[in-house]
């Protein structure tokens, strides 16, 4: 009898942990990341609308992952060259970010800027970054948006001299995520 009680306690504890952990995470797989390169000859922009992002509201941890092949460009040839030569998506298929939201306990239903500190990995190169982003936590949703600048040379993405008039050295990255409760 006593053994049974213990087992029930253990199982219920286990389920409780499982449950509470599940509700602590907010997730999206349709996040939007856009990058914009402004150069003398050409402005280039590309969109990825299949970005995965997850936030653990208990710990304030946040992670983002995207496939580079999902970026779509206005010109198909640019997209091909982006994957083939610049970002080398066969070798480095994804870009990721993992970090912690500062002051995450104060997230509220009014849009507020938080700094996210973490590691950004693009083209196989990891860098410590601090990104400012707007967070809004409404009932059962966390919206995040903002932008930051990526210097291509930081991530060993080489721009040949012949196209330096076409591609900027610093790329503006804009992001927008609407997280929903993660259930698994």
């Amino acid at each position: 009898m006593k053994t049974n009680k213990i087992i029930i306690t253990v199982i219920s504890c286990f389920l409780l942990i499982l449950n509470s952990k599940a509700q602590d995470k907010f997730f999206t797989k349709t996040g939007d990341i856009n990058f914009f390169s402004k150069a003398p000859l050409e402005n280039i922009t590309a969109d990825n609308k299949d970005v995965l992002s997850i936030i653990n509201v208990e710990t304030g941890e946040m992670a983002i992952q995207m496939k580079m092949i999902d970026f779509t460009f206005e010109k198909a040839l640019m997209q091909e060259h982006f994957n083939e030569n610049y970002i080398e998506s066969d070798k480095y298929p994804t870009a990721t970010f993992k970090g912690t939201i500062t002051d995450f306990k104060n997230m509220s239903d009014t849009k507020k800027e938080h700094t996210v500190k973490g590691v950004l990995t693009i083209h196989g190169v990891s860098k410590n970054v601090e990104i400012k982003a707007n967070f809004k936590k409404a009932n059962n949703a966390i919206d995040v948006d903002g932008n930051f600048i990526v210097a291509l040379k930081d991530y060993k993405i080489k721009i040949p001299k012949i196209v330096f008039m076409n591609i900027a050295e610093n790329i503006k990255v804009t992001f927008k995520f609407n997280h929903q409760p993660y259930t698994k």
Binding site: I6, V10, I17, K21, I54, M62, A63
Partner: peptide, 27 residues
């Protein structure tokens, strides 16, 4: 035993890295 079991299950969750979840969710 209960304690060990609970602890290990907690451990199990803390290892559940956010990026691993994203990897799992990637189609």
């Amino acid at each position: 035993l209960t304690f060990v079991f609970l602890a290990s299950s907690m451990l199990c969750f803390s290892q559940d890295d956010l990026l691993d979840i994203l990897d799992k969710e990637t189609v």
